[in-house]
Amino acid sequence: MNRVINDPNQVTEDSLAGVLRAHPDLLTATDHPRVLRCAGPATSRVGVVTGGGSGHEPAFLGYVGPGLVDAVAVGEVFASPTAKSFHAAFREADRGQGVACLYGNYAGDNMNVKMAVKLAAKDGIQVETVVANDDVASAPADEADRRRGVAGEILMWKAGGARAAEGADLDGVIAASRKAIDNTRSIGIGLSACTIPANGKPNFSIETGTMEVGIGHHGEHGIAVLPVAPAREMAGIMLEKILADLPFDGEEVAVLVSGLGATPLMELYLLYGHVDEMLRARNVTPRHRFVGNYFTSLEMMGVSVTLCRLDGELDRLLRAPARSIGLTVAGS
């Protein structure tokens, strides 16, 4: 495969170097090479940390910024950051008021965060966690604790970051983050595989002419392999799964349509049009709309749809000003 890289084993380091040069106004290096923090002076409030594997850009580092995440732990491509990285991120984000670690439900992340929380406790840093599990395709509703975290994490970071910026204490930040993810559901459709640069070849396949409904962010198998359908039908399939999982009738929602890496923005907007139309036909009103490459999987073709059921607080938190590589909200 043709790639814009040097050493396939150094893509994470090399990419981080570019990110820091491109966004000195947003991101600052730390003593730990795999931890970045929000640029500028630290204000006294609860710290917000996330972390995850590389290859999902702009996630996770692209959501570090004012009104969002304070420090991020960066893992290898598709692999959890180390316990020591999460621990270093907690130290960077802590200003004596505790740290909210908001991350996705994967075995590696769970273990590394668990170890890092113990390490931080020895430093006297209080860390509370919220584990995103918004992917409806990754486990049935009665096993929701096995579900993966996907693009819905962005709304969790936005809510938690905004609540921290409002001056809430750690419990308040955790509660807002949990409310956001508990009211959020996502599903993806994969149209082509992706290749970890160090592997050199894809470790899963999607046959030409087929689509995998419910695919995971690392190519995890979904719930059905179907012939590629028109965008209108894709929107219907995805909304059916999400809406059946939470009662969305007659509510206001945030809608996030993310490309998985190699699907053109034009197609993402095309899909959004159908999603918006279908939601309104069910009396569900899209109040916040995000369309773009928010949470990707290297060069996978495909798309994910995320809905977040809003109440007054979540609406306010999503509306609050924020600035980052992946998401900027002017505020209103």
Binding site: G75, S80, T82, A83, G108, M111, N112, M115
Partner: peptide, 15 residues
């Protein structure tokens, strides 16, 4: 393994 290898295997074999 704990300091340089993330994923699941870093913490498991590291510990």
């Amino acid at each position: 393994l704990l300091g340089d290898i993330g994923g699941s295997m870093g913490p498991l074999y590291g510990s």
